[in-house]
Amino acid sequence: MNRRFRIGPSLVTLAAILYFFVPLYAAFQFSLQMKRGELSLAAYGSVFQDGVFINALTFSILASAAAILFGALLVVPTAYWVRLRLPKLRPVVEFISLLPLIIPSVVLVFGQIRMFGSSSILPLTTSDWGTNLLLVIGYVVLSLPYMFRAVDNGMAAIDIATLTEAAESLGASRARIVFTIIFPNIRAAVVSGAFLTFSICLGEFAIASLLNRSAFGPYMVQLGQDRAYEPAALAIMSFALTWVLMGLMQAFANMKPGQGLFRLPFQKKSPRP
């Protein structure tokens, strides 16, 4: 099949590459034109000098990090326990983890606002910290499908049940098993789930906007309405950041136990044989 129609596939591929490349080039080009008549990085400088930008970005990074931590703490023990002890619950747990793909974030936050609004038993939206908490919770829910799948795949790859039995037969305690055997082995999976969560939450708009948080997503939308060149600069930076996150995720996903971008304190480096 290699001998026929090479022109067709080449044209299709070329067209796709053009379609992918042109908007990036256009945004980049546009972002350099802030100063009339010359190409400069002024738009980038202007973005970084904006205190609101720094605040919004910091807030979103913190919220995303909290969502990652919360999500991992929720998903890892659950996935482990379900694989080991409650395989019957597996379809239920998996189904729930997929629900956020079906329920748009607008709908989710709508429900949460009504549920935890001022007149409810758990009025989270009345206080600032409560609203922040609700935002993080929203992000945890939003990233649940990705986190769960990443962790569950990681556990599937390393026969959790046998490893646990092997460790128990050698006399290890349950906590020791989780921290010295299970976690190091699925670390790559957790990290890749974390990066995915981060890339979803950092620029998230609907939940942040409806909870009136001054997060990065609403900030970008506002900037898009007020300014011309800065949004293009932001688009380029976001795209670069997404690349970096995906690259890191791939690196972690392909990483084998023992080699590492970072090492956990309880892991001693073993001498090469």
Binding site: A26, A27, F205, G217, G224, P231, A232, A235, S238, F239
Partner: peptide, 9 residues
């Protein structure tokens, strides 16, 4: 949002 910006440009 960033995608929208890129297409506006």
């Amino acid at each position: 949002v960033p995608l929208a910006f890129a297409f506006i440009a």
